[in-house]
């Protein structure tokens, strides 16, 4: 991968971050976690966003646990990892690291859409189920609340199962991809092997 391509990848990854997050990285100035290219990209992005660039702290070359905790933004603790993998000069031949990170983000977005569409679709299921349940008790107005309650429970169960069938495999896929990327990163030359779970 050429230097220009690498710079573009670093930049597009950093561009996804909030301004506050970029300002934090800039100010903390941890050179162990972030490369010079990453800092150049952050400076450019902040200038583009019209943000006044603050002074940086003295550079830190050793990552202590406190800084690591501050910079770990993602719930899975993989944000720092993603940056490391993208920053690495020795990029893989068979896949694009940015593609994996984008796919992971797209999976999260799709999961939200799946939940929303299934809940909305529950309205049509409710109408259908209440029609079926109601057909067993025609002309029984006094049972109507009970029938609606049964239809609601059946609909809720059906929607929950439909969401679960898509949600868990996709979530698992996202985690598997992250673990595979981490394993691949650790297998590169010059990378110190560390346990996957610390």
């Amino acid at each position: 991968m050429s230097n220009e391509e690498l710079r573009r990848q670093i930049r597009s990854n950093l561009n996804l971050k909030e301004t506050d997050e970029l300002l934090d990285i800039w100010t903390i100035n941890n050179r162990a976690s972030w490369s010079d290219q990453a800092f150049e990209a952050i400076e450019d992005i902040l200038k583009e966003r019209g943000v006044e660039i603050p002074e940086q702290n003295d550079p830190v070359y050793k990552m202590d646990e406190e800084i690591a905790a501050e910079e770990t933004v993602d719930d899975d603790g993989l944000d720092e990892w993603e940056a490391k993998v993208l920053d690495d000069e020795n990029q893989p031949e068979f896949y694009d690291t940015l593609e994996v990170i984008t796919l992971k983000d797209n999976i999260s977005k799709t999961l939200k859409a799946v939940i929303l569409v299934n809940i909305l679709g529950g309205v049509t299921i409710f109408q259908w189920v209440s029609g079926i349940v109601g057909s067993y008790f025609p002309n029984r107005q006094e049972l109507r609340p009970l029938l609606y309650l049964i239809a609601f429970i059946v609909t809720a169960l059906s929607v929950a199962i439909e969401i679960a069938i898509v949600y868990f495999p996709l979530k698992a896929l996202a985690h598997i991809l992250c673990i595979l990327m981490e394993m691949e990163f650790r297998s590169r030359k010059g990378i110190q092997p560390k346990p996957l779970v610390e």
Partner: peptide, 22 residues
């Protein structure tokens, strides 16, 4: 969803090959 799963399978297999070769 099918697109993402197939894309994920493709990337995952490539990563496995890359890791093994490394």
């Amino acid at each position: 969803v099918s697109f993402l799963v197939l894309k994920g399978i493709s990337l995952g297999l490539n990563m496995i090959v890359e890791t093994d070769i490394n």
